[in-house]
C-alpha cells in the first residue's frame, strides 16, 4: 500500500523536496519502506515522549527506552510485547529475591549477569509456551525486541535495587504508557503515509515543536497537582 502511494507521487522541484528524492533513491536501492517510515517517524516519537515529560510530567526511563519499546510493539505486537516484558520482569525480580533469601552474596556485575542468565531461560520457556497458542504469532520475534525488553527489565531491577520497588513500578508503568502511546502513533496508517509523502513538512514541524518545548518554562500538569495546596493559598 505504502509502495503504491510512494510511486504515485510526483516529486516536484528537487531544490525544495530533497528528502523526497532521497527516499525515492533509497527505495530503488531496495531499502525497505518500513525502515524509511520508521526513520522518519522516530523524531516524532521522541517529540511525543519529550512533550509528555515537559508538559505533563510523565517521566519513564529516559527517552531511548520508551521509543525503542514503541518499535518493539510495532514489530511483535503490543500483546506479545507486554507479555514478554512481564515474563522478563517477573523472572528477574523473582531471581533477585531468591538470591537474597539464599544469602548468596555476589559482586554487582556477576550478579547482574546471573540474573540475565535466568531471564534467558524464562524467555525460552515463554517462547516454547507461546508456540502452542497459535494466535500470538511468535514468528515476528527476533533478537532485537528481546534485547530491548531485557534492557528495560534491567533498568527496572536497577531502580528497584537502588531506590524502591514502588519507584521502579511507577517508572516502568510510565515507560509502558509512553511506549504504548508512541506505538499507537507509529502504527497509524495515516501518520505513516503522511510522513512518507511529506518528509520535509514532517521533519520541519517536529523541529519547530522541539524548539518550543525546549523553551517552555511553565509548570507541568503533574506539578499543578503536586502544588495544588500552594495555588489554593
Amino acid at each position: 500500500m505504502l509502495e503504491n502511494l510512494l510511486l504515485g507521487q510526483s516529486l516536484g522541484d528537487p531544490l525544495f523536496n530533497p528528502l523526497k528524492y532521497a527516499i525515492r533513491a533509497a527505495y530503488y536501492s531496495e531499502v525497505s519502506l518500513e525502515t524509511i517510515v520508521l526513520l522518519l517517524l522516530l523524531p516524532l516519537v521522541t517529540l511525543i515522549i519529550a512533550a509528555f515529560r515537559h508538559l505533563m510530567g510523565l517521566r519513564g526511563f529516559g527517552i531511548f527506552l520508551p521509543a525503542s519499546l514503541a518499535v518493539v510493539f510495532l514489530a511483535i505486537g503490543p500483546t506479545l510485547g507486554l507479555g514478554l516484558f512481564l515474563v522478563i520482569v517477573l523472572a528477574s525480580t523473582f531471581f533477585r529475591t531468591t538470591l537474597r533469601k539464599l544469602k548468596i552474596k555476589l559482586a554487582y556485575l556477576p550478579r547482574m549477569s546471573l540474573i540475565l542468565w535466568a531471564v534467558t531461560l524464562c524467555v525460552f520457556a515463554a517462547l516454547f509456551g507461546a508456540h502452542f497458542i497459535s494466535t500470538l504469532g511468535v514468528s515476528g520475534v527476533s533478537i532485537f525486541p528481546i534485547l530491548i525488553l531485557i534492557l528495560l527489565a534491567e533498568e527496572f531491577t536497577r531502580v528497584q535495587l537502588g531506590k524502591s520497588a514502588e519507584v521502579a513500578m511507577t517508572l516502568t508503568g510510565e515507560t509502558l504508557v509512553l511506549g504504548l502511546v508512541s506505538w499507537a502513533v507509529l502504527a497509524l496508517p495515516q501518520v505513516q503515509s503522511f510522513a512518507l509523502l511529506n518528509p520535509e513538512t514532517t521533519l520541519l514541524s517536529v523541529l519547530a515543536l522541539d524548539l518550543f518545548l525546549g523553551r517552555y518554562t511553565g509548570l507541568r500538569l503533574a506539578e499543578l497537582w503536586r502544588f495544588r495546596k500552594l495555588l489554593r493559598k
Binding site: R215, E223, L230, L231
Partner: peptide, 16 residues
C-alpha cells in the same frame, strides 16, 4: 498564590 510564583522542574533547569 499565583502560578508564576512556583518553581517547576522546567523552569529550574531552564532559567535558574
Amino acid at each position: 498564590m499565583k502560578l508564576s510564583s512556583i518553581l517547576g522542574l522546567n523552569s529550574r533547569s531552564a532559567i535558574f
